[in-house]
């Protein structure tokens, strides 16, 4: 198991360098530059522009800029935002708990609803339930998040008044964050109603963010279950007279889990991508909105370091998923 883990870790190192290079290049390939973005419509004189470019070091060869950047990253220095002048790592640490909280709740919703829906659809293949579930899943998968979010806000917040429109907690609750996770902070704040307010603010954004992963997980579970349900050993189990619940739950589902776990692991990337739009619509102060702002301002430092940190986190999650595979299916370790 240790050898397996080391092998996986060894693969991560070149990937990290590849991503750092891609992130560094990506932001520079975008048209526009941070100095002009900072200057706004007033513009900046050519002399002042040259001075600032020199000050930021953007007039030096890309190779030198990259090597300096990666050198600093290796010492844990991810740089200072060009726009806000605050350290990137500090901003990330302040904002990431909000994204993590939202993504976790969204993933829980997606898994808790997606897997049972997929199982039932597979077991009742061809039934109205199957067709309705897969129809809804396809619709969910194809739904533009931006439009879906606004639709939910208009209906549930605007028309019915059931949920708040945006934000993380009611503005009447003010306490300095302890963990950054609003559900926990609101609980330990001791303010009555704070936790309820935090939960109500989470409902719509987490539903929106969960929509695509839920659809993917439901479809993946259904197809994995269908494949396993047709296997000989399942037929044998049934022939032996085992209860259908036991056949599906123990024999079929456990074996169908591997592609489902893979899919769940891959959803971390989808959640990060989905967070960008979800956070923008719901004014959710997380790293998705932060990255969008940084791209708009051509804040090279935030974009390149932010992408790298996010990639590191996604890779760490994927590593955990790989380890989970090995736990679920020991044959993987040998391979």
């Amino acid at each position: 198991m240790l050898r397996y883990l080391l092998h996986k870790l060894a693969l991560i190192i070149p990937t990290v360098f590849g991503i750092s290079l891609a992130a560094f290049a990506f932001v520079r390939l975008l048209p526009g530059d941070p100095i002009l973005a900072l200057a706004g419509e007033r513009g900046v004189s050519p002399e002042r522009y040259a001075q600032l470019i020199e000050q930021f070091g953007y007039n030096r060869p890309y190779v030198i800029q990259y090597l300096e950047y990666i050198g600093r990253v290796l010492t844990g220095d991810f740089g200072i935002s060009i726009a806000t002048k605050r350290p990137v790592l500090g901003e990330f640490q302040a904002l990431f708990p909000a994204t993590l909280e939202l993504a976790t709740v969204a993933l829980i919703i997606a898994v808790l609803l997606g897997i049972p829906a997929g199982i039932f659809a597979a077991v009742k293949r061809g039934s109205w339930f199957d067709q309705a579930t897969m129809g809804v899943a396809l619709t969910g998968y194809s739904m533009p998040i931006f439009w879906w979010g606004l639709l939910l806000i208009i209906f549930f917040s605007g028309y019915l008044g059931w949920t708040p429109v945006s934000g993380r907690i009611g503005l009447q609750y003010f306490f300095r964050p302890t963990t950054g996770f609003m559900l926990i902070d609101s609980l330990i704040s001791g303010r009555s109603g704070a936790f309820k307010s935090a939960v109500s603010h989470l409902i719509l954004p987490s539903i929106v963010l969960a929509t695509i992963p839920l659809a993917v997980i439901a479809r993946q579970t259904r197809s994995a279950m269908l494949e396993v349900l047709g296997e000989d050993y399942v037929r044998t189990a049934r022939a032996k007279g085992l209860a259908p619940r036991r056949v599906i739950g123990l024999h079929a589902f456990r074996n169908a889990l591997i592609p489902v776990v893979t899919t769940i692991g891959l959803q971390v990337g989808t959640l990060m991508a989905g967070a960008i739009l979800t956070e923008t619509i719901f004014s959710w102060p997380g790293i998705g909105k932060w990255m969008i702002d940084a791209i708009g301002k051509r804040d090279y430092v935030v974009v390149q370091s932010g992408l790298l940190i996010i990639a590191l986190i996604v890779m760490a999650v994927n590593l955990i998923v790989d380890v989970l595979y090995a736990v679920i299916n020991p044959r993987i370790r040998v391979q």
């Binding site: 208009i154 917040s157 605007g158 945006s166 503005l171 923008t280 004014s283 102060p285």
Partner: peptide
């Protein structure tokens, strides 16, 4: 209350937020 999307700002105003 920082709310970048103008449509969401309008909804918040209507909802009394």
């Amino acid at each position: 209350a920082i709310t970048p999307d103008p449509a969401v700002r309008a909804q918040k105003l209507k909802a009394g937020e």
